[in-house]
């Protein structure tokens, strides 16, 4: 029996889809069987980020309406043996084309065969959000260190607390270290203070992510990028490992700092 995790944020453009694609891929790299579900009906993106756009034949709405079998709609990622699948959203319908009951049924069916079902939630708190959350067991809230994104994340957490799921976990995305240092951007403590939920990962702003999304290759497949390591760490934390949070900046490695470290002094 697998578990279903919904990735949500409230605000648009904070990196839900990118996070879904990368967490899913990272879990697949760890040898888990993963199915990504795109619930952003009408504005699907997950297939593009994964580079699977051309292979879509059936979609979520077809499955919900019984126009095809669930197996037929699943798109397999060729980069993996039998690890990663995508259930794409429909592009021509809207959010009301699927009901919460149908989503629950589809997700519970997927849970029979997959270890993880990662549900990419649309922005907003309307029907699309309700659908995405309906079948989920856990939730991950993505935010960026901006006041508006944090405000929306707070609202979403409030809504998630009313659902029969585990307390949500938090990802802070697109942190710009130099801006945080200057005090122009909220730092991690400020965000976690307001939202008061468990932090599961922080991701530095990385141009490589955009490049990777455009080429349809999730960033986790490139092992050298910082964002890639961050996503891999999140996947490991989901699997229950305890991985320390990534250092956002490389501390200066002078003789003095080494010495201080040696003597256990706090810098």
């Amino acid at each position: 029996m697998g578990e279903a995790i919904v990735i949500t944020s409230g605000k648009g453009g904070v990196g839900k889809t990118t996070s879904s694609a990368n967490i899913g891929t990272a879990l697949a790299l760890q040898g888990k069987k993963v199915c990504l579900v795109d619930t952003d009906i009408g504005l699907r993106n997950l297939d593009v980020v994964l580079g699977l756009e051309n292979r879509i034949i059936y979609d979520l709405v077809d499955v919900a309406k019984g126009q095809c079998k669930l197996q037929q709609a699943l798109v397999k990622d060729k980069r993996f043996e039998d690890q990663l699948y995508l259930l794409p959203a429909a592009q021509s319908s809207d959010k009301s084309a699927v009901t919460e009951e149908q989503m629950k049924k589809i997700v519970s069916e997927l849970k029979q065969t997959f270890d993880f079902i990662i549900i990419d939630c649309p922005a907003g708190i309307e029907q699309g959000f309700q659908n995405a959350v309906a079948g989920a067991d856990k939730a991950i809230v993505v935010t960026t260190p901006e006041v508006s994104a944090v405000r929306d994340a707070d609202r979403i957490i409030g809504l998630l607390e009313k659902k029969p799921i585990e307390p949500p976990k938090l990802i802070i995305n697109r942190i710009r270290t130099n801006m945080v240092k200057k005090g122009d951007m909220l730092d991690i403590d400020e965000v976690t203070n307001i939202l008061a939920i468990e932090l599961i990962g922080i991701i530095a702003d990385d141009e490589e992510v955009i490049k990777a999304s455009n080429s349809g290759e999730p960033i986790v497949l490139n092992p050298n990028s910082k964002a890639s390591i961050a996503y891999r760490n999140i996947a490991r934390r989901i699997l229950g490992e305890s991985v320390p949070l990534q250092q956002l900046e490389t501390p200066p490695k002078g003789m003095m700092t080494k010495l201080k470290k040696f003597f256990g002094a706090r810098t």
């Binding site: 405000r151 957490i157 409030g158 607390e161």
Partner: peptide, 14 residues
């Protein structure tokens, strides 16, 4: 006349 004790975070929109 009662004091209502509530233990939670009152979030945006609540």
């Amino acid at each position: 006349s009662e004091i209502h004790v509530v233990n939670k975070v009152v979030r945006s929109g609540q």
